[in-house]
Structures are given as C-alpha cells and as structure tokens.
Design a protein around this nucleic acid. Structure first.
Lengths: 202, 202
DNA sequence: ATCGAATGTAGGCGCCGCCAACAATGCTGT
DNA sequence: ACAGCATTGTTGGCGGCGCCTACATTCGAT
C-alpha cells in the first residue's frame, strides 16, 4: 500500500456522504428537533456543498424517510432481541413493552418521524415492510400464547390491535411529553397486567 | 344606521382576521397537510398583506398552537356529549371510544398537530388545561365505574393509563394511515370488550 | 376632536429547497 | 494503459418562506 499524503484540502469525494448525512441528521433531530433539520445545514456540518445532499436524497422528504427506515430497523432489532420465547406470556410481554417504551424514551423525535403519515407511495413499500417486521414481534408473542392456551381464542387481529394500541399509546404519551419516562417504565408491569386480566372484577 | 357604500376595495381592517386565518389554516391543513401551511399563503387566501398575520400570531408556531387549542376544544366537547352517565360501563366506554376515533378519522392532521411536542412553556399552560379537560371524560367514566364496583379497585392512574393508551394508540394507527377507518370503527366494541375482560381465559 | 393603541401595508434580509450547468473522480471494457 | 461514461461534488441562481422594521390607516377612549 503506497502511503497516501494527507491532502491539504479534503478529497473531492466524501466517501460515504449518504451515511454521514443520515448520522448528522439524526444527531440534529435528537438535539434540536425535526424543525431544525435543513439539508443545507446538514451539508455544512458534514463539510460539503449545499447541493451535494441532492445526489443521495431526491428531496428532503426522502432523507426523512430514510431516517425513519433506520429507526424501524433499530426498533425491530431491539424488540426481537428483547423477546424471549422461553418465558411465560406475562413476563415475555412485559419485556417487549419495556423495550418498546425504552426506545420511545431514547428516540422520541425519531419515533415521531416514524409515525408521520407522509410516505410517498414508492417509499411506503419499504416502510410498510419495516412496520410489519416491527409489529411482527408482538404478533408472534400473542400467537404463541394463543397456541399455548395462555390467552383466549379469537381473531388474532383483534388481540394484536388492543395490545399494540396500548403500547403504541403509551409511547405516544411519552413522545408527546405527557408522561414522564420514569412513570411510564414504572407502570409497564401494571399495564401488561391490566391488559391480560382486564379491568372487570373476576 | 347610515347606509354604508360597499367600498370598491375591501376595508383597511379585516374585522376578524385572527378567526379567518385560523379557519383558512384548518382548511389548508385538512386539504394539503401541515407542510403546506405558510403564513404568507394564508394571508394571500384571506386577502391581506404578508405581514398582517404577525399582528395576531407572534410566529408560525403560535398559530399552530392556537389551531391545536381549537382542536382540543372540539374534541373535548365531542367526548363530553358522547358520554352518557346513565349507561353501564361497557356501552358508555364504547360510546366514548367511538367519539374519539370518529374525531381522529375526521381530523387526522389536526390530531397530529395536537399531539406534537412543540409547545413553548407559555402556550403549554393552556395546552395542558385543554388536554386535562379532554382526558377528564375518560377519567370520569372510569372513576364512576370504580365507585359502582363495575371495575376493580386500585390506582385510578393505572386504569386511566391502560384505557387512555389503548384509545390513543388506535387513534395513532388511524392518523398514521395504518388502520383503515372502517376497520377501526368496526373494532371498537371488541377493543373495549378485551380491555374490560382481559386476554387471559377466565 | 385628539391622541395613543391596535391593526394592516410595503419592503427587505437571510435562510431554505430545488434546479441547471459544470468539474472532478471512480469504474469498466478494451 | 486509457478512453469514455456514470457517479459524485461544486457554484450560482430562482422563488418562497419567516421574521423584522418603518410607515399608514383606523378604532376607541378621553
């Protein structure tokens, strides 16, 4: 390998501008919110010209979509690793819930982006796949539980809806700032318990 | 009253510019989404100069906050009228849920605005009041049910959280476009039922 | 009737997203 | 080795936006 002299000026080509832009975007998103995201500012941070991002993202929305996609990837990975099929239903679901809420706490703005209803038809394909993969963790847990007789029979879609909605709702409360993170995490067990056992006296 | 000649040009003062701006903003929001909202465009629609809105809203966020506030007013009114204290718990809760989801279906973009975590400290006072008044409907229903022994005793906060989260979650699914409105409305009864009776076999 | 407060207008500044024209670099087939 | 082409980056510019300041008109209290 010939020793390359470090150029006085950075090389003409960045090397991995796309990834650098996404990383900078996520940092800005986390620190200053989505409203502060501008392609020109990102370009400045990364050290390229103001039109360079256009080579990697057709427009601003495309970058936001890509950002949301990385979010889904991380979230579904987190959910999948949190879920232990060996556990009985209640702790298994609790672990899943804890993972989801933890992600919501650590990535509130990103989550908001992931929920946003903006996706142009081409992007929404990948988006739908990502969402499905994410929701899949929950579906699997409930389907297993149903198979084992740990929960009632009946349309799995309905069970997925109640459970998913409850988790999604709490995440929404967190993201909106209506629920302090500690309170949310402290309430996870009770939440899952009430979901499984209902509110009516038995 | 002296008969006023209709001026060739509209009068210098609009009369109720603030309300007109809010109305136009909500129409644009509904038809083209929040991204298409611009103060200058609103001013053009209403027929005033591009700086006129600044007299009524300190900045764009202030207009969005005001819009969100009107949303909370309408939502809490809808919830309060939907709720009939004479009914037993399950139908009462179902009616409340139906009202909330109906609002979410008809005002998806507005709801997204209402959920947004942007509110500067001064605005968030009124906002918190509005949220509390909205959530109050649900809290009242559950408190009454608890008093009547229709649901288990225990920390009301926890019960409010599960129930509220489930409703909020479904509304989020609707707003995100993941759940078709008909499916959501069709599933309301099952949702409430599962919430009250739980997923475990009894 | 007057004078200050409220409301609307005109113009401008800096930023933004997006586009077009051009420059530098990497890659591939011969 | 290198020519030719696609890729990736640069510069400059256009129109739109939010926000600000200075100025004009109208309203309302005295």
């Amino acid at each position: 390998m010939v020793r390359m002299p470090v150029p006085e000026t950075r090389p003409y080509h960045h090397g991995d501008l796309r990834a650098a832009l996404l990383a900078a975007a996520e940092r800005t998103l986390r620190e200053k919110g989505v409203a502060a995201l501008s392609l020109r500012e990102l370009a400045r941070e990364v050290g390229v010209s103001h039109a360079a991002p256009g080579r990697h993202f057709r427009d601003k929305q495309a970058l936001l979509n890509a950002l949301a996609l990385t979010g889904y990837e991380r979230l579904s990975r987190a959910l999948n690793t949190a879920e232990d099929p060996a556990l009985p239903l209640e702790p298994r679901l609790t672990a899943l819930a804890r993972a989801y809420l933890g992600f919501a706490i650590d990535n509130a703005e990103l989550l908001e982006l992931m929920y946003a209803r903006k996706h142009d038809p081409d992007a929404s394909e990948q988006m739908a796949v990502a969402v499905e993969r994410t929701v899949g963790s929950l579906e699997r847990v409930l389907a297993d539980a149903q198979k084992r007789g740990e929960i009632i029979a009946g349309d799995p879609e309905e069970l997925n809806l109640v459970t998913g909605a409850a988790l999604h709702g709490v995440a929404g409360f967190i993201a909106a700032g209506w629920l302090p993170p500690e309170t949310a995490l402290a309430g996870v067990e009770g939440l899952v318990h009430h979901l499984l056992h209902g509110l009516k006296p038995r």
